[in-house]
Design a protein around this nucleic acid. Structure first.
Lengths: 247, 247
DNA sequence: GATCCTATTCCTGGATCCAGGAGCCGCTTC
DNA sequence: GAAGCGGCTCCTGGATCCAGGAATAGGATC
């Protein structure tokens, strides 16, 4: 395994790797995770694997059925909606608090992130759908996160940050929408505009404005996302109790 | 162990018991949890204990230091504040959503919970400080929870509910404040009033009003709590890396 | 007498082993 | 031919065993 940090257990390392795989969409929702398979994949015994899976289960990334194993959690549209509602409130809160704590350095950093994000958004929209677009999309997601991370840093609310990120995690965006779809261009444009507005509100020190903007930013992402999902025809499957149910 | 539900592993059962012990304050913050001690206490091997501890660590109830064990998480005033901020937003959200979904049955149930809560609050205030007061306080906490639970049930937002409860959990109220202290009588009175107001807003179907009331309800609890903690003189200890750090 | 080094002990993390539950397949029986 | 029953296999959950890190106490050295 690359990057095994000192002062961490194998279980923790493995949990992080699996988590990353789930969030990135590499492990599709519904995938069954076999302890033995994972243990040989990571060259460890099943013990740390089980501890890692316990952790992921507690975080809600996998669902756990006693004596029957774990599988990557599928998320229903309702749950997705809820996750966005929560994020909207928490990001609103964090941004409100941040408004009163922005230093000159943080504002500069925010400007830079905003600029970069706008640049990448523009870049993305100018490209034709295709494979190279997918790679840039990774950049886009990262830039998006950096922007919000600056705000979290300013707000200095670790718990809020952790919860919001965990809610953000519950939806592995790029893994779902088709990168070769121009209908998300609207998302790029709108998001960039919203980031700009949030940035300005923070410059102005407007706590209430920043909160409202951040909240709407998240909610509008959900609305747009929902229409995209409808077009793509994503089908959230219920899977409790498994395979060829009946017949 | 009492109440081992079928279709659950020992690790899960144990995690729940320990969680309860932590939340109720039976296990004081800072307590070191030894695997072997727990294993003989529950009459199991260390394996399920470790899995239970992993789960609690993921939930944030204990902090985990590799090779050095776990201890019950101490919470700083800042963290406590944050937890209340989060709860305020989430309860506000849930209550807003609930406002549009209240059925006749739910309203009746809410009335009953509100009535009971007011009754217990009144009962508590009329008593002199003492041991019997502590037992009633348990009733009070339960009644308080039931009231909010009705709202969560109406809102039908499991994720929000889960997160809010986890935030609520982060502070084990009755374990901290002294039951023989009349300064919290104000809390009882104010909480009862606020419950009544929230109930009325839900009857009126006022989503915005219900949200604001619920949010302020939580925030005001924190404010009052803070003054009480100051009186009691609670001292949140940092403990990272243990004891005699450099004299 | 104080400090640094070392050995011992304790405890956690990981590996391996064993028991039991769940699904499946084939056989039997009606 | 279909349904019910019993055994087989796979896989998880739990117990036990082993290795290594951390703290401590004791001794050696300055």
């Amino acid at each position: 395994m690359r990057g095994v940090s000192l002062d961490s257990t194998k279980a923790d390392d493995i949990a992080l790797v699996i988590e990353e795989a789930i969030v990135s969409g590499e492990l599709a929702p519904g995938t069954v995770l076999r302890q033995e398979q994972l243990s040989e994949q990571f060259n460890v015994s099943r013990t740390p694997i089980r501890e890692a899976l316990r952790r992921l289960a507690a975080l809600g990334l996998v669902s756990f059925v006693p004596n029957r194993g774990v599988r990557v959690r599928t998320i229903s549209r309702d749950e997705l909606h809820e996750a966005f509602l929560v994020r909207a409130e928490l990001e609103g809160l964090a941004t409100e608090i941040a408004a009163g704590k922005m230093t000159r350095e943080l504002l500069a950093e925010l400007d830079e992130c905003e600029r970069r994000f706008a640049e990448i958004s523009q870049d993305l929209r100018s490209r034709e759908p295709g494979e190279e677009r997918r790679s840039i999309m990774g950049e886009w997601v990262r830039a998006n996160h950096s922007f919000h991370d600056v705000i979290y840093r300013a707000a200095d609310l670790p718990l809020v940050e952790q919860l919001a990120k965990s809610a953000r995690r519950s939806f592995s965006g790029p893994a779902v929408w088709a990168p070769g779809d121009h209908s998300i261009d609207e998302l790029y444009a709108r998001n960039a505009e919203q980031h700009r507005a949030i940035k300005q509100a923070l410059h102005a020190g407007s706590a209430a404005g920043a909160r409202a903007l951040a909240r709407e930013h998240v909610l509008s992402s959900f609305n747009l996302l929902e229409t995209i999902l409808e077009q793509v025809g994503a089908q959230p499957r219920d899977w409790q109790r498994g395979r060829a149910a009946r017949r």
